[in-house]
């Protein structure tokens, strides 16, 4: 699947995460900002990657500002960002949820 439009989900409140997806050409290109990057950076990327893969997105620029979000929050924000980026908000892919 190709990203149709730049999309954002999430806020900069503590315990939230803001994810911006843009069309890319070179696999998944992450830009991550987080106070817990040292301990959880890889896990944050892995959680978002899993969601992107579930939607068969192959290329994306992913800007992430994490404010200490728990895994379930990261997954929810990633799902929303993907659906907005693919313009399928009205027809979500229930199987990946």
């Amino acid at each position: 699947m190709e990203i149709k439009q730049t999309a954002m989900a999430g806020t900069l409140e503590s315990s939230d995460i803001q994810i911006i997806l843009r069309a890319g050409t070179n696999g998944y290109e992450f830009e991550l900002e987080s106070d817990v990057a040292k301990q959880f950076g890889d896990q944050i990327k892995a959680t978002i990657t899993n969601v992107l893969q579930a939607y068969a997105i192959e290329n994306a620029q992913i800007s992430v500002v994490d404010k200490g979000a728990l895994d379930l929050v990261i997954k929810a924000r990633a799902l929303t960002a993907v659906q907005r980026a693919l313009a399928i908000v009205d027809t979500p892919n229930w199987e990946v949820m």
Partner: peptide, 10 residues
Amino acid sequence: KKVGTPKPLE
């Protein structure tokens, strides 16, 4: 269980 297992600090 809530936060996950952190990667050890270096």
